[in-house]
Amino acid sequence: MNTNAVTQTRNAPVRAGLSRSQSERLSTWFSYLLLVLGSIVILVPFAWMLSTSLKLKADVYIFPPQWIPKPMQWHNYVEAFTTFPFGLYTYNSIIIVVFVLIGTLFSCSFSAYGFSRLNAPGRNFIFMVLLATMMLPSAVTMVPIYLFFNKLGWVDTFLPLIIPAWFGSAFFIFMMRQFFMGIPYELEDSARIDGCSTYGIWARIMVPLSKPVLVTVAVFTFMGTWNDFMGPLIYLTDENKRTLALGLSYFQGSARSAPDLHLLMAASLYAIAPCVILYFLCQKIFVKGMVFTGVKG
């Protein structure tokens, strides 16, 4: 688990001897069967969502369901957008995500460098405390942090959703520290000889070298922030400041004013889309890169 940890994916063990035997082939086919079945279970809900979102209102409540709506009601998406300002909500979500991303990447890599390379009394103790907070349910801190931001007058602004990201996150610091520890000291030493300060080393050597881990952290942060519901629910009120997740939950409304399901599904699909697109763009990072999160330390 060293330098190339991120891209390191060893293939599954190839067992010697039995390579082409019949039982092997049978088990392969059986695996395929299971994989295909599993994929269906995973993908059908999406299809269901898409199908509902394209139906006429009256066709939603038909049993057994009709999978391919005819005619396709693309108009539903327009309608969902005109009843609710999802464009504005998307913009808000993006603003928050961008600032959270910058804050997380900066603060985590900055701190992680301190924890991994610079000897300071008490460092390991602080790090252990930091790791211990990963066990802490956010529900415990929810009320005092709300009161704190309320005192600052930050309620109903984006700040309570953004600022905490600027102060590191235990898990990501842990990840980055692991990564930094794998970078050979020689690189730093030679930079130091060239007159680079510690900050210069961080900025010019560590950060560029840790691109893979930064991307991973960025992608996870994006997903987490984009999907966050409780934060916006607690802190945001103003109609013009709602995030997509919050707007969507209000779109669901109350019993008195439940919206139509086809519109709700159209809006939900829209809310999910950025995550899905990002996922497919970065799937290598997810599926291969996860290896290095190195649970084993």
Binding site: F99, F106, W154, D156, T157, F158, L159, I162, N240
Partner: peptide
């Protein structure tokens, strides 16, 4: 720059 940006955010955080 970061601080300036966050003050922008605070500013648009309509009080």
């Amino acid at each position: 720059v970061v601080l300036a940006l966050s003050s922008v955010l605070y500013g648009c955080g309509g009080n």
